[in-house]
């Protein structure tokens, strides 16, 4: 259940950003969640309101967009998406691909007043 730690880290960082940007109220935050981030979406959605409850962010909405797993072939630059992790060789040239996106949990944007 590391989603509670993630929600806590998220809220701490949001408060820092808001202080720095002089933001009064957070309406919503959009977070991009890679399919390989290891984050359980429902658990994060469950924890976020619990964590904001005791903060000035109370009532803020968490929006999660899922980032697909993106592979790229380092040789022919071909890129493709996948549902699951599978390092099958590049369909174009047979090289071993690398993952370029879909691993991270990232704050994308804040809707503020």
């Amino acid at each position: 259940m590391h989603e509670l730690s993630l929600a806590t880290a998220l809220v701490e960082q949001l408060q820092e950003i808001m202080a720095r940007e002089g933001v009064q109220e957070l309406v919503s935050v959009t977070v991009a969640m890679g399919v390989l981030s290891g984050v359980e979406r429902e658990a994060l959605e469950f924890c976020f309101p619990l964590v904001v409850e005791a903060t000035p962010l109370k009532g803020a909405i968490l929006k999660i967009v899922e980032t697909p797993l993106c592979f790229r072939c380092p040789r022919c630059q071909r890129e493709w998406q996948a549902e699951k992790v599978d390092f099958a060789p590049c369909g174009g040239c047979g090289s071993a691909p690398e993952i370029i996106d879909g691993r991270d949990l990232v704050i994308r944007s804040l809707e503020v007043t």
Binding site: L6, L105, I107, E111, V112
Partner: peptide, 18 residues
Amino acid sequence: VSPAHRHLSLESRVLAKN
């Protein structure tokens, strides 16, 4: 929605501190 709403875009890992 209210014109007072604005958007801040960023790209910051949630676990940036860790």
